[in-house]
């Protein structure tokens, strides 16, 4: 019996799938620990990161454990890849989750921490409870979903951040343990029609100048208004001994890519000056942020007239 949540399409009658989070139960594919969570906490939405969805909103970040990929630079390997003794999930119903989110002052629930595909039925159940209570819902994904799952996800989420780590199959095979980038490219196109999407690309040494530009062209081809986050990764997990990336060299590439995509951000290092949203028409700073490093961009202020630039009137794609 095959699991069709992601493109691995594991045969679960033979045992655990790649992610280890689904089983066959009473003849259907079911989560091992449905509606059970490893962590929830409150952050500003910029830290997820989402820069064009609910600027400044407080969100409840929630997740489980496990992943269908095995990135050698995973920043959450302790949850996604390695099983740590004593790491337990806590059952919390959708209704209770929503109450916790509201008590915590959150305007949205965001499934982050680990890959949403490995707990998709729970994410959908919780998303529906959140929507019923008037909260927005978003998630982070590596995009390696089947078409059916991508469709489900797109219909349940208000905003999705999709990680596009490279444009080459070879990179995906070597560094992420995934056979191909093609399903991800396909899903970016599909999800962009169903929900607000942002794309994130972690920058490691193998991502060349050329590849950055190729990714920018791919995104622009889908929709040039998609915000693109370039993340400078501090060497971590299996790459912990690598030299850190040269920020100065990356800045030059970012400036070039800006000519292809108007909403491009370069962050994940303290002091970055590439995290503000500027009007592509007149350059006016619309949303100010500060980058404190390690996924931390703080909301500063917003200067928009509804969805328009207050200076030149250009329409800016931001969910308010």
């Amino acid at each position: 019996m095959n699991c069709n949540y992601c493109e691995w399409r594991c045969d679960l009658s033979k045992g655990n799938g790649i992610c280890g989070r689904y089983i066959v139960s009473n003849g259907i594919i079911a989560e091992k620990e449905p509606m059970s969570w490893i962590s929830y906490y409150f952050y500003r939405i910029e830290e997820m990161p989402f820069f064009h969805a609910l600027p400044g909103a407080i969100v409840m970040q929630i997740g489980t454990k496990g992943c269908n990929a095995s990135c050698d630079y995973c920043v959450n390997a302790h949850i996604a890849i390695k099983e740590e003794p004593g790491q337990t999930l806590k059952p919390i119903t959708g209704k209770h989750l929503v109450q916790l989110a509201i008590d915590g002052g959150a305007g949205a629930v965001v499934f982050a921490i680990n890959e949403v595909t490995v707990f998709l039925p729970s994410a959908i159940e919780a998303a529906r409870a959140a929507h019923e209570a008037g909260l927005k819902v978003g998630c982070l994904t590596n995009g390696y979903l089947t078409e059916e799952s991508a469709n489900m996800l797109g219909n349940e989420m208000d905003f999705i951040n999709i990680s596009l780590k490279s444009i080459s199959d070879e990179f995906y095979q070597k560094n992420l343990g995934l056979p191909s980038v093609k399903p991800i490219l396909r899903n970016i196109k599909a999800l962009s029609k169903l929900a607000h999407i942002e794309v994130l690309t972690p920058i490691v040494h193998e991502i060349t100048h050329d590849e950055v530009l190729k990714i920018a062209y791919f995104i622009a081809d889908v929709d040039e208004n998609i915000p693109w986050h370039l993340f400078r990764l501090q060497p971590t997990y299996k790459r912990v001994d690598e030299n850190p990336l040269d920020i100065g060299a990356m800045i030059k590439i970012v400036e070039q890519a800006k000519k292809i995509l108007p909403f491009i951000y370069f962050g994940n290092f303290a002091g970055s000056q590439w995290v503000n949203t500027r009007c592509p028409g007149c350059g006016h700073v619309l949303v100010k942020r500060v980058c404190i490093g390690s996924c931390g961009s703080k909301f500063g202020s917003i200067d928009m007239d509804g969805n328009r630039c207050p200076k030149c009137g250009k329409n800016i794609p931001v969910i308010r």
């Binding site: 920043v75 501090q234 971590t236 290092f269 303290a270 002091g271 404190i292 490093g293 390690s294 996924c295 931390g296």
Partner: peptide, 12 residues
Amino acid sequence: CHSRQLSMSGVF
């Protein structure tokens, strides 16, 4: 040091 969640972001 300038660190968050054990991830090092440099010197402050």
